[in-house]
C-alpha cells in the first residue's frame, strides 16, 4: 500500500513543511490562503444556511439573512420536532435495507474480486469478465427500471412468497424493503468488486504463492490469508456503499410505492416534505434534510479518509 501514497508524510516531513511554510510566508502564499478560505466558504455556506434556517421561525426566515443565525426571538426547535416526527419511521426503514444490503454487497464484492484477482487464469478472459463488471458500475439505472418493475411485480412476487411474514403482523409493504436489499446488492456488486480488486492487486503475489505452496486451496487462501488482510478495504467499501444506498432515491421511488407507505425510506419522505398548497416550508425542509443526512454525515465526519479513498478509486 505504501507505494500508492508515495508522499504520505511521516511526522518529520510535516514539521519540516510547516517550518518551511512559515519561513516563506509571502504575499503570494497569503493570497493562496484567502482563495482557499473563500472556496471553503462557498462549500460551507449552502450547508450552513440550511442549518441556521432549520432553527428559524416563519418570521425570522423573512427578516434575517439566509445565512445569519436566527437570534433569540426567531429561534425554534419546532421544525426539527416536526421533521423528526415525520422522518423517524423512514429512518428505520432505510436502515432496514441499507445495512443488510451494504454488508452483503461488501462481502460478495470481496469474494468476487478475490476470484478475479488472485487465482491465475488467462488474463484475456479475466479482462472480459472485468469489463462487463466495470461497465455495470456506469449503467444508467433508467435502462433497467421498467424490467426491474416487471420482475418484482410479475415474476418474483415476494408479496406472496413472504406471506408467512405478513401473517405475523408485518405490513406487506415491507416486501419492498426485501426487494431493495436484493436490488442494491445486485447493482452494488460491480463497484464493490472493483474497490476490492484494486486492493487485492497490491497484495504480495509471493505471499499468495507461498500459501498455495503450503498446500492451501483457493478457498483456504481466501479464508486464512486474504480475508483477514481485507480489513482496511472493508472499511472503505462499507462506508462508500452505505452512503450510496442510503442516499439513493431512484430505486426506492420505483420499488416502494409511495411515501405514505409504512415501509417508505427516509429519502422518499424527505423529497415531499414541507411542500403543501400554501407554499414551501423551508425551515421544515432544512430540518428534514439535516435529519435525513445525519447518518451519512456522521460516517463522513468519523471516516473521512476512507470515504475519500472510496470515491477516488
Amino acid at each position: 500500500m505504501s507505494d500508492t501514497k508515495p508522499r504520505t508524510d511521516g511526522g518529520a516531513t510535516t514539521t519540516a513543511r510547516l517550518r518551511r511554510t512559515l519561513d516563506r510566508m509571502t504575499v503570494e502564499d497569503a493570497g493562496l490562503y484567502v482563495v482557499l478560505l473563500f472556496a471553503a466558504l462557498f462549500y460551507i455556506v449552502p450547508i450552513e444556511s440550511g442549518l441556521v434556517t432549520s432553527f428559524k421561525t416563519g418570521t425570522a426566515i423573512i427578516e434575517t439573512a439566509p445565512f445569519a443565525p436566527p437570534g433569540p426571538s426567531g429561534f425554534t426547535f419546532e421544525k426539527w420536532q416536526t421533521a423528526i416526527d415525520a422522518l423517524l419511521r423512514g429512518m428505520g426503514n432505510s436502515l432496514l435495507y441499507a445495512v443488510p444490503a451494504t454488508v452483503i454487497s461488501a462481502i460478495v464484492g470481496s469474494i468476487t474480486a478475490y476470484g478475479l484477482t488472485i487465482p491465475t487464469w488467462k488474463k484475456s478472459y479475466k479482462a472480459v469478465v472485468l469489463m462487463l463488471i466495470i461497465a455495470g458500475i456506469f449503467i444508467p439505472y433508467q435502462a433497467v427500471l421498467v424490467p426491474l418493475t416487471q420482475f418484482w411485480s410479475q415474476w418474483a412476487q415476494l408479496d406472496q412468497v413472504l406471506s408467512f411474514v405478513w401473517a405475523l403482523g408485518v405490513s406487506n409493504d415491507y416486501a419492498g424493503i426485501v426487494e431493495l436489499v436484493i436490488t442494491h446488492v445486485a447493482y452494488g456488486i460491480p463497484i464493490c468488486t472493483l474497490l476490492f480488486r484494486t486492493y487485492y492487486k497490491t497484495m504480495s503475489e509471493e505471499m499468495i504463492e507461498s500459501a498455495r505452496l503450503d498446500g492451501a486451496t483457493l478457498r483456504r487462501v481466501y479464508r486464512r490469508i486474504v480475508l483477514p488482510l481485507s480489513g482496511p478495504m472493508f472499511a472503505v467499501v462499507l462506508i462508500y456503499q452505505f452512503t450510496q444506498i442510503w442516499n439513493d432515491l431512484l430505486f426506492t421511488l420505483v420499488l416502494v410505492s409511495t411515501e405514505s407507505s409504512p415501509a417508505a425510506p427516509v429519502v422518499l419522505i424527505l423529497a415531499g416534505l414541507g411542500t403543501s398548497l400554501e407554499g414551501q416550508d423551508f425551515a421544515l425542509r432544512m430540518a428534514g434534510a439535516f435529519f435525513a443526512a445525519l447518518p451519512t454525515l456522521a460516517v463522513y465526519i468519523f471516516f473521512g479518509e476512507e470515504f475519500a479513498e472510496g470515491v477516488a478509486a
Partner: peptide
C-alpha cells in the same frame, strides 16, 4: 500437478510471510 500437491516448499526473495 498443482503446486500444493507437489510436496515442495519455497523460500521467496521477499520472504512472503503472512503479516497478520
Amino acid at each position: 500437478v498443482k503446486s500444493q500437491d507437489r510436496d515442495i516448499a519455497m523460500v521467496f526473495q521477499s520472504y512472503a510471510l503472512y503479516p497478520h
